[in-house]
Every structure is written in structure tokens, then in C-alpha cells.
Design a binder for these strands. Structure first.
Lengths: 119, 119
DNA sequence: CCTATATTTCGAAACATGTCGAATTATGAA
DNA sequence: TTCATAATTCGACATGTTTCGAAATATAGG
């Protein structure tokens, strides 16, 4: 409503809110194709999974998963697209870059003590 | 409780939860000394502010601010230290790096902006 | 049309959150 | 000790979240 800063403050808080639930965070991680600690990240393709696929990994009622997917979708974090009987979910890449922006607001990169040297 | 992944999943979700409220996010930003978009970031020093100082910027009852500060503190995101009548808050740098870790889990750096047209 | 499968919507219960003002505690100073 | 200032705790209230199972909707295939 008021100014730009307030807008983005609320907007950013909203993004974080959508990821502040363990189940939603897990879904988003799965869709990001990532990345156990230490494991090489291979997200060179857009991942998408149907709802039932996600359902199998989450040990919650499918109605509950559906609710969480709606939250992620409303926050603009994921896209959902029907293909036949199934609905496929994928990360919205725009949202990913917004997430990086919030973090820059909060955890500046120039905190790094040393600069890496390329050869 | 269960395994490592679940633990950190919950832990990360907790960090995000603590920042998912606009007022708490704003406080954390103020303490990070950051960084309007486009402005060069000058957080080469640890910022700390007393509670009353923060109170002036937030248009909420001081009891409400106190509640939010407790949340941030319990999540391990900020440190609080009494100095005379006042209590000074500062960002916990360890938490900042944990935040960066969550983000790497969610928004991998090796995401290619352009599609590779390989054969 | 009928049926099986995939997913969402609904209704309800239990629990958590954000907010305030009033009362309380902690500290330093007169 | 008494007072003023800084901050927290308490009690209350309204609102939001998480979860489930049951019912509803959508789709593809006989």
C-alpha cells in the first residue's frame, strides 16, 4: 500500500512465510532438484513432478499436501500445470531469484573475508 | 528425532519462519545494516541497536516488538546484550551463513540462465 | 455412460500468531 | 530510598495454520 520498501518487505516476508513450513520447504527442495549437502547439484533441467509423486515422499494426507501446494502456488513460488489426469508442479525461476534478493538484503555477500582467485 | 535431513529441514524452516513476519524481517534488515536495492552495501562492521532505537522505526507497541525480538533470538538469528539500561541487538553471523545454506538448497547457484543447445 | 485414478474442496478440531495495554522487572541517577 | 527510563511479561482477544477424512470434481479409457 504505502511505499516501495514496505511493499517489498511484505512481499519478501510472504515468500519466506510460504517456505517456513517443513513440508512446503521439502516440496520446494524436491522441485528444485536439490541437493543433499555434499552432493553435486545436477539441476540443469527444469524439474516437475506430479502431485501424487510428491505425495509419496511426504507422509501426509493428500488433502494436506494439496493445501500446501496451493500456498506455494499463491506465493508465486511454484507453477502448476495439468497434463492429462495429473497436475505437474515446477519451481518458478523468477521466484528463485527473488529469494536470492531477500537474502542479499539480509546476508550481504561482501561479508566474505577472502576473494577466490581464478587461475 | 529422525534423521539428519529431517532435522535440518525443520531447522531451516524455523529460520525462515522467524523471518516470515514483516516486522521481524525489517528488524533483521536494520540489524544487517543493509542495503536498499542498488545501494552499495557497507556492512563491514557489526551493527547493533538498542530495543528502543528499533522501536522508533517500527510503529508497533513496544511489547509487540519485544515479542518479535524474542522470536528472532530464540531462532538464533540475533544476539542480545544488556549495556546499562539498554539492551543491544545484533545479527548472529552464524545464522547468516545458515540462511545462505538454505538458499543454496532451494535456489542452486549453478542454475543456468540460458538453455544449453548441445547436440 | 460408467468406472478408476488424480487431485481438490469442505468442515471441523487443535494449536499457533500478532497485537495491545497494564503490570512488572532491571538499571542508573538524584 | 525514590524516581525515571528501558525493556519484558502477562492476560486477553481475534485471526491464521496445520491437519485430517469425507465428499466433490476432473480426466481418460473402456
Amino acid at each position: 500500500m504505502s511505499n516501495y520498501e514496505t511493499m517489498s518487505l511484505e512481499h519478501y516476508a510472504n515468500l519466506l512465510r510460504a517456505l517456513s513450513n517443513p513440508h512446503r520447504l521439502q516440496v520446494f527442495q524436491l522441485l528444485s532438484g536439490c541437493c543433499e549437502a555434499g552432493t553435486p547439484c545436477r539441476s540443469d533441467q527444469v524439474l516437475s513432478r506430479c502431485v501424487g509423486d510428491l505425495d509419496q515422499q511426504l507422509e501426509i494426507a493428500s488433502s494436506t499436501l494439496s493445501h500446501h501446494l496451493r500456498e506455494l502456488h499463491h506465493a508465486g513460488l511454484i507453477d502448476m500445470q495439468r497434463r492429462g489426469k495429473q497436475i505437474f508442479c515446477s519451481v518458478n525461476p523468477d521466484a528463485q531469484s527473488q529469494l536470492r534478493q531477500v537474502l542479499d538484503t539480509i546476508s550481504p555477500l561482501n561479508t566474505r573475508p577472502e576473494v577466490t582467485h581464478d587461475r
